[in-house]
Design a protein around this nucleic acid. Structure first.
Lengths: 218, 218
DNA sequence: ACCTGAACACCGTTCAAGT
DNA sequence: ACCTGAACACCGTTCAAGT
């Protein structure tokens, strides 16, 4: 009578599902992620996923959070010697690099609210570090927000990638200043990188100016 | 024998479809836009849309472009007296306002490449104006890109909206600095607005510093 | 507890047929 | 040219059934 079932350990776990979903969205895009396709990738039937997640959207949220979790936050550790400006710069670079490794996930990450644990950890670390550096709390909140705007915006859509390489694509009558625009297409990585660095430097320079007026070093 | 058909004028047009799609996405979100639903809203059957657009995605692209078209560009007119910094500021404000009126469209707008006519007109106007103001072309390109990053990022996901209003939501053990975070939920509009203005000012302050070094006033 | 197949109410898109 | 209904190959999700 010893027929207690359950030696057969579970085929699925939240972790296995998230990993498979991230792999799929990385390689084939958001549109390729259907519950049936994802389940097939995992060797199970579609409805099985619903034992681990309530909806497909929650799977994608978990994927987004797993990307946020890859952002380095060590520069905000209290024992780290970096000043706030350097810490913010290094964080932004690490943040963007993490998103650029999973560009197809960025729309989910950028749009969904920050209810995800790893997203909250980001917000907590930058806020705490800025306050510790002497920024008033309201300003520290703004800094977390505006850095997020800039980094997700830069990771979301390539600017240069939007141009086509065809020399005849931009009629001077319509776009008088885009005569060289077709040249952007071939160097999009470089151009987006430079724009990101230019913007980040400007942002930090501007914040440094504000800091001198409002901050109270503790 | 005078039976030439076609007095019955077309029921649909690209314009009517785009307007209906924009209304639908504004009121019920991107997910509510299906070809069948959109067609029903227009009083026709689903496949009719394919006489005017090749795919549903192209309908959404056209919606995105119609939003870009609402961005004011008059501050870049050569006869406008505003200096480059003021023009850039006013443009960013108008740009963000247009996106905020159609928040559900922003993911499409931010992600899709800038092949859309109105999107190209934006890029053309800001690039031309910055070059005219004395910025080297490579820098003018960067400015167009980084402003787009910041504005679309700020319109895409509310920062403050990501927090819940529940006081017990953020365990201090997990998020030591988010003790007041639940207060953000009630004032998200104000907080996002302030973060946008703070970031924009920092960006323009920083660019002004760079301008003094690199630009050659003509 | 966790997985399955069947089923429901949807999708985007194609196509032959009508006017 | 422009619209239709029927059809194809899909969707997300629920649910009763199995172990």
């Amino acid at each position: 009578m010893c027929r207690m079932a359950r030696p057969r350990k579970p085929l699925l776990s939240r972790d296995r599902i998230v990993t498979a979903a991230r792999t799929l969205v990385d390689s084939e895009g958001l549109a390729a992620v259907s519950t049936r396709r994802l389940a097939a990738e995992l060797g199970v039937s579609g409805p099985s996923l619903y034992n681990h997640f309530r909806t497909k959207d929650q799977i994608l949220e978990a994927v987004a959070d797993s990307v946020s979790a890859q952002v380095d936050l060590s520069m905000f550790d209290p024992q780290d010697a970096r000043d706030w400006r350097t810490a913010l710069h290094d964080w932004a670079v690490s943040y963007r690099a993490a998103l650029r490794e999973h560009p197809n996930v960025v729309p989910v990450l950028a749009q969904g609210p920050g209810r995800r644990p790893a997203g909250l950890r980001l917000a907590d670390a930058v806020f705490g570090s800025m306050v510790d550096a002497g920024w008033p709390p309201a300003q520290a909140t703004s800094i977390g927000a505006l850095m997020r705007y800039f980094v997700t915006g830069s990771a979301l859509g390539s600017f240069a990638g939007g141009f086509v390489g065809d020399e005849t694509a931009y009629d001077p009558a319509d776009y008088p200043h885009l005569g060289q625009a077709h040249l952007l297409a071939g160097r999009q990585e470089e151009i987006d990188e430079r724009a990101f660095e230019t913007g980040l430097t400007a942002l930090l320079d501007g914040l440094t100016q504000q800091y001198e007026q409002v901050a109270a070093p503790h």
